[in-house]
Design a protein around this nucleic acid. Structure first.
Lengths: 199, 199
DNA sequence: GTATTATCCGAGCTTTAGCTCGCGTTTCTC
DNA sequence: GAGAAACGCGAGCTAAAGCTCGGATAATAC
């Protein structure tokens, strides 16, 4: 059965508490990986008791889900701002905007964006964060590459997400904040896109 | 302290038992992800008792390490055969050979290669499987792109590994054995490589 | 001020993953 | 064939993760 429904925060202090929990959880998930983070870790790192944590979250998974929801909304909004679908804007410019966005979002709960994008941990969880990006890319491809079959557009969108994720997974092996990594990801995206769009 | 040393198999039956454990572990790791697989699962799936399992493996991590070692050796040998460094062989041909190799290796303990390549689970484990590929790619880049700085060659090699991993992580979202995925990975590799080598 | 509701706390209960241990069985050695 | 070594087994021990519960405190309602 699904876990019992929890209380919704009604006062300012409890809303702050929930926020602190989400921030703490984000940092820990990004740092150690979801399976290696305990709810006691989260509570301690947030300066909150486990009891309080479980007043607002039914289980550990729900904390992750809340994080994903928040970031899905945030990413979707940001992408709508920056991924203008005008067929005449320069491709390199669009790519640059996306890389900027990633750099920016990956700053504050550090590494969390990368974690949310990369982690699937075995289950094919309907990853809303990835889906948000995927959806926008499909729109973009529909206007830029209308001759490509819809099915292939899906695959291409997945590839684009994956290559961009190189920012994080390659960053792990090559030094996390290496600007050279960003350069290579840009090169890979442009090289691939040019080849696809030129067909 | 490190876990106590275990017995080495000395009879045929125990060697078979170890093999069965490794195969079972590989399938389960690939299917559910390392953290979600218990040693009891492995033993059960291998048709072996937990006790027997722990006669040859000190802990769960050692099972993973044994798998990685075996695949590191296997991949290294295969790559040495196929990744000829002659600067005159066609690039597309080399890429094709690598994609063939991946398809072939990913067949028997299904999905295990993808798992070994992708999984880092938080810790920056010195992933020998990836290192084996990385090393060969560095050689190849040294002969093909001698004008590129060594540091950048490292980053490029990481990107190549990452893009190739798209075979697995994109395959998860786009239908596991979709041949279109292979086509896109090839396009991405060639598009990126051409751009890098043309500079 | 009092009653009511929301909040917070953390010791400790429950479950389960990782792993051990002693005994029975098979194979090897001579 | 007898003794020794290697092997196989699975009930159950230990530690730790997930989570609960009852009581104390703070905010809100009237």
């Amino acid at each position: 059965m699904p876990p019992t429904q929890r209380r919704q925060p009604k006062q300012a202090r409890s809303r702050e508490l929930v926020d602190r929990i989400l921030v703490a959880a984000g940092e820990l998930f990004a740092g150690r990986g979801y399976p290696f983070v305990t709810t006691n870790h989260i509570a301690e790192h947030a300066g909150v008791s486990v009891g309080s944590l479980y007043q607002f979250f039914a289980d550990k998974e729900e904390i992750l889900a809340a994080l994903q929801d928040a970031w899905t909304a945030r990413l979707g909004a940001e992408l709508d701002l920056r991924l203008r679908v005008d067929a005449d804007t320069d491709l390199a410019e669009t790519v640059e905007a996306v890389l900027d966005l990633h750099a920016e979002l990956n700053r504050q709960p550090p590494g969390l964006l990368g974690f949310l994008l990369i982690s699937t941990f075995g289950k094919q969880d309907s990853n809303g964060v990835v889906a948000a990006i995927h959806e926008r890319l499909l729109d973009l491809l529909a206007s830029r590459a209308p001759h490509v079959s819809p099915h292939r557009r899906h695959v291409i969108a997945s590839m684009l997400v994956h290559i961009t994720n190189g920012l994080y997974s390659v960053g792990l092996t090559a030094g996390a904040t290496d600007p050279a990594v960003r350069g290579e990801v840009r090169a890979a995206l442009l090289g691939y896109l040019n080849q696809v769009l030129a067909e």
